[in-house]
Design a binder for these strands. Structure first.
Lengths: 158, 158
DNA sequence: ATAAACTGTTTACTAGATTAACAATATGAG
DNA sequence: CTCATATTGTTAATCTAGTAAACAGTTTAT
């Protein structure tokens, strides 16, 4: 009876420990990979280069000229309030303009300047170079697969 | 001649705009996916549950009992200073102990308590449930592929 | 007409992280 | 052995990215 209890306890302990391997979690791997890519992005674009989120915002403003702040925040998945500083920076650098929209005096359309479009084209090239170099151990097929799988995760969003 | 210049300029403009699609970048997709997984993690584990980084730290302490703070920080890829608050929290909750190491009075070995091991086993189940549910639109094969591709990115790290 | 909703913004706050400095301790070269 | 160098855990200051709540101005819908 005592030996049975002991056996039971040993089994419980083993079950408790059962391969506590962090590496099995997708979230953990996602974060580690994200940190690597993000920090290489910053390193490559340099001190005065765009931060990732600023690059993203500029990209969308170039792609969707006249997008509103609300719309842009929605596209980026952040709060309107959080976007203000980003747009301030881009406007301060002369890369976009906040313009009035006739017919709705609440909203401001964000319009890229010529300088903004040029700066974006350059930055895009730099970002492509950064990803190409950093991810050179992934084949094009692998990159496409990764994009598709990340897309599946993104598709889960409410 | 003037018309030739005009044509050239039009071509330049088009080249400038050339599909400025944020979605083509792996970094952007990685971040968006990471945000979704991370926020579902928090939502699932709840107000009083572990934050992702605390869960990760506890996992490694359970897997590597007697790991030092420095070693743990290295494994997590963060600074030693940043780990202090995490270990404080885990020790405050009674889930691990900072213990002296005979032979080196600088270091403290981090040892999980029984309570810590139990709490980790429960949390691990919750995290697995969160990932299983959130990522239910990915097959096991797809999850394995994703892990392997994220592993390739992680392998690029210095 | 008036309640409800939306827009851009400010302010205050939080989380997660880094850097620089520090005292205590250990290690290695001469 | 000694002394320069390195390591450990920690604090303090700082930074970035983000949220939440409130607000005035404006629009929409009942």
């Amino acid at each position: 009876m005592a030996s049975v209890r002991k056996t039971d306890k040993r089994i419980e302990d083993e079950a408790l420990v059962e391969t506590p391997d962090l590496e099995e979690f997708i979230g953990y791997n996602l974060k580690r990979a994200y940190v690597i890519v993000q920090s290489d992005f910053r390193r490559t674009l340099g001190e005065d280069g765009f931060a990732p989120r600023v690059f993203s915002a500029l990209s969308l403003v170039v792609q969707y000229p006249n997008v509103t702040s609300s719309g842009l925040a929605r596209m980026l998945g952040i709060e309107r309030s959080g976007l203000v500083a980003i747009v301030d920076e881009l406007e301060g650098r002369g890369l976009l303009k906040r313009t009035n929209v006739p017919g709705d005096r609440r909203v401001q359309a964000l319009v890229p300047t010529t300088k903004g479009k040029t700066a974006y084209a350059e930055a895009r090239a730099a970002v492509r170079a950064h990803e190409d170099k950093l991810l050179s151990n992934l084949s094009d097929d692998e990159k496409a697969t990764l994009m598709s799988l990340l897309g599946k995760i993104r598709a889960t969003e409410a």
